[in-house]
Design a protein around this nucleic acid. Sequence first.
DNA 1: ATTGCATAGTTTGCATAACATAATATGTTA
DNA 2: TAACATATTATGTTATGCAAACTATGCAAT
Lengths: 113, 113
Amino acid sequence: MKFESQLLKGIAPVVVLEILSRGPMYGYELSQAIEQRSGDILTLGKGTLYPLLYNLEAKKLVKGKWENNQSSRKRRYYSITSKGKGQLAKQKAQLRELTAGLNLVFGGALTPA
Amino acid sequence: MKFESQLLKGIAPVVVLEILSRGPMYGYELSQAIEQRSGDILTLGKGTLYPLLYNLEAKKLVKGKWENNQSSRKRRYYSITSKGKGQLAKQKAQLRELTAGLNLVFGGALTPA
DNA sequence: ATTGCATAGTTTGCATAACATAATATGTTA
DNA sequence: TAACATATTATGTTATGCAAACTATGCAAT
């Protein structure tokens, strides 16, 4: 699907960026936040999430920082960059388009309420 | 995304099954129908569509049949099987769940109208 | 103490999706 | 006959999503 499938593949990144846009988080926390904020519908396994974070960091869409809290393990906190915010806006717009297209194809049967 | 990403990868198949559920079509026709019925938002390249059709046929979700129209080329018409209809229903339900989850994460920003 | 559990992160390797691209072939139109 | 739209097949690349194994640490119960 032309640009839409890039979007589809990109759905995990967008979700991550969206959640990080509300504040920094570390990987493990993120994986739980995704579940919680999606009503337990979306789940990212660590085998997906961590490599994804490395990839987002390499693209400078997020930035990671090790933090040594006393009385807890070392954690790598990720925060969204300004470049990441731009990307998020773009991808959200595409996601809107995609769901619009799907609704056309499926006759609106996807958003019942 | 647990079962959701299977879904995501499966978005092209669902679209194809949905359109075939309204009547048989051949590949080239399908690729155009997808564009038209999605308001030019969704596009499947032939490098994606044909292999997908072979795959769906191998899974017995669709069934292909060569037809020799006079005054036109040989075309392979695909129709959805009863197994395919069952699969379509399942995947539509998952698609509904997915969009629901996305709407939760994005605060409903995906279905503006 | 040590066992077990939840947390936290890394890495490897697999299956497959989506795609571009090229090759092949045919009917229609200029 | 050249160009174009139609129609299908095939090849190779890239990247995703994932499971699973591995390393580590803090905490709680026994």
